[in-house]
Amino acid sequence: MSLEQFQDRNVAEQNYFHVDIPDYPTTGWGKVKRAASRTFKGELFVGLWVVFREMIKFDIHTVQYPKEKLPVGPRYRAVHEMQRLFESGTERCIGCGLCEKICISNCIRMETKLDENSRKLVTDYTINLGRCIFCGYCAEVCPELAIVHGPRYENVSDQRAHFTDFSDMLTPIDAAISGTQKEFDGFGAVTPHEDERVKTTPLAY
């Protein structure tokens, strides 16, 4: 399914149709008839035949997890990632604290200070994944698209309060500089028509 098709919410013009399912029997005799037909119709053998047929075809659709993984959609919300700016590789996070504020399970804590260039610097940042409910508010509120939800859904830990650190979430610097960092197009990301929505402020003098 293409993205355009996916985003098109007009049900009437697409190939939707009603599935013809007969009503459930309501009378006692009707229920007896349904039970009898289910018992003697041999549907069980239909199922067994399908399994057998697929088995001898060696065209198995089961994903061989964890050897292989299904691709997840861009809107999937798993463990957070911290993005960098392309080319320069500077951290995108400006330390505004909005993610910390909006977090409804109170699992984000950041520490900031004034750096030598009189800018706000994030010195420490953690997310308690034991508390995180992966609601995506942090990614949505982030004004810099710095904190995003990545596709990594496997977070096993030997304790409930499994923390993740800023450095663990941050894109490796070489990935940012070489341009292999994947731009986030999920929850809270910039929409394709964003340019039309931005109100320009005249700064010409």
Partner: peptide
């Protein structure tokens, strides 16, 4: 305040 500056947001 030089000491406090940028260490915490007021709402926290």
């Amino acid at each position: 305040s030089s000491d406090f500056k940028y260490t915490a947001n007021a709402w926290e």
